[in-house]
């Protein structure tokens, strides 16, 4: 078990200026880890909300600090934005008597596959999987290829399990596009699982529009319920839309394992 009574944990989320639910998973897991009293301090910080990445380290009083990105994959945010805004120089940054340890994003944990499958099962418990397309939808961005590669990796692993007739991926900002799901899936039943942390702006408000199950951006998840309306019958197909995986209670353990994995991998860097 991770016990870091003299260390701080900073969970970094994207946050949103438009959607009040974007930061919810990050706060949820920070609350849970705080309740377990494993760290001296637990804080959240965000790109789009407060405290910002520029502010949060002023709040931290411990000299030993773990930064865990509550992001679904390596990519633009974990490789460019977070290191830049926190002024990190690598996995271990020493500054003003403090040691700042930059961990992998939570999405690198191997249990993400199980969480995606659990979401698919919860959304469509009664569909015959041998007649179902499972569509994993990610953000994708031209700024960094790793975002899509992470989703592709999940698809590869799930495909090898041979649970569904078809397993494929689609993205918001790069091909294959989510809006083309009709021609990119072959089965009558289509289960769509967002490869996102939060039921925030993208997974809850943008993607339903791209799928065609909403004509316009709807209210935030906390203000209405989209998942209970499954299935959506469209063009002779039956589409099921699942919620994002980041609110799974298991994610608190994933965060703690991410810290433990950092210690194992960077023992020499920290001791140097």
């Amino acid at each position: 078990m991770v016990e870091k009574w003299e260390s701080a944990l900073v969970l970094v989320g994207h946050g949103s200026t438009l959607n009040p639910d974007s930061s919810a998973p990050t706060f949820q897991h920070a609350d849970e880890i705080g309740r377990r009293e494993l760290f001296a301090e637990v804080y959240c910080a965000f790109w789009k909300e407060e405290p910002s990445l520029r502010e949060v380290l002023r709040m931290v009083e411990s000299d030993d600090i773990y930064i865990v990105p509550n992001f679904i994959s390596e990519g633009y945010f974990t490789e460019t934005i977070i290191p830049r805004e926190l002024e990190l120089t690598g996995p271990v940054t020493r500054r003003s008597g403090k040691v700042i340890k930059y961990c992998e994003p939570v999405g690198n944990d191997p249990r993400m596959v199980d969480l995606l499958l659990r979401r698919a099962q919860d959304a469509a418990p009664n569909v015959p999987r041998e007649k179902t397309s499972l569509l994993i939808v990610g953000h994708g961005t031209s700024l960094n290829q790793k975002s899509a590669e992470a989703a592709q990796q999940q698809v590869r692993v799930i495909r090898e399990k041979r649970l569904y007739a078809e397993v494929t991926e689609a993205y918001m900002e790069e091909p294959p596009f989510i809006a083309d799901w009709r021609k990119n899936t072959s089965q009558r039943h289509v289960v769509v699982v967002p490869f996102f942390i939060a039921d925030g702006l993208h997974s809850y408000q943008d993607i339903p529009v791209l799928l065609g199950i909403e004509s316009d951006r709807t209210a935030a998840a906390s203000q209405q319920e989209i998942f209970r309306r499954n299935p959506y019958n469209m063009d002779g197909r039956e589409l099921y839309y699942a919620s994002a995986i980041g609110t799974e209670p298991l994610m608190a353990d994933v965060i703690l394992d991410t810290v433990a994995r950092f210690d194992r991998r960077h023992l020499c860097d920290v001791a140097a």
Partner: peptide, 8 residues
């Protein structure tokens, strides 16, 4: 209420 205000 005011994240980081006192620390800042």
């Amino acid at each position: 209420f005011y994240p980081g205000a006192v620390a800042t």
